[in-house]
């Protein structure tokens, strides 16, 4: 068998080294799209996803004044 032949080992090597294809969008972009989806209106898990950063950032604001908090409306503007 020459090096030009596709044996199972070589094939598995090529398959294991498939290029990594990533999603270039930000998490905020994904969240905004979910917020705009009518099927998720009042979904408790989506509410949690957008509420907690507000609380976190408000905590941070206690330590650093003047920082703009992340809000649902701000998320939608991104």
């Amino acid at each position: 068998m020459t090096h030009k032949q596709f044996d199972d080992e070589h094939l598995e090597h090529v398959l294991h080294n498939a290029p990594k294809l990533s999603d270039h969008r930000s998490k905020e972009e994904l969240l905004n799209r979910l917020l705009a989806d009518a099927r998720l209106q009042d979904n408790v898990h989506l509410q949690e996803a957008i509420q907690q950063p507000i609380e976190d950032e408000q905590d941070q604001q206690d330590h650093s004044a003047g920082q703009e908090p992340t809000t649902r409306s701000k998320l939608r503007q991104m």
């Binding site: 498939a18 990594k20 294809l21 990533s22 999603d23 998490k27 994904l30 969240l31 979910l34 898990h45 989506l46 949690e48 996803a49 907690q52 950063p53 976190d56």
Partner: peptide, 24 residues
């Protein structure tokens, strides 16, 4: 840090799931 379902799953698996979908 937000440990809601969305953030947890996104942080752990989003790129893997996206790669699975884009290869399909």
């Amino acid at each position: 840090m937000n440990d809601s379902v969305f953030h947890r799953l996104y942080d752990a698996y989003h790129q893997d799931v996206f790669q699975f979908l884009i290869y399909l």
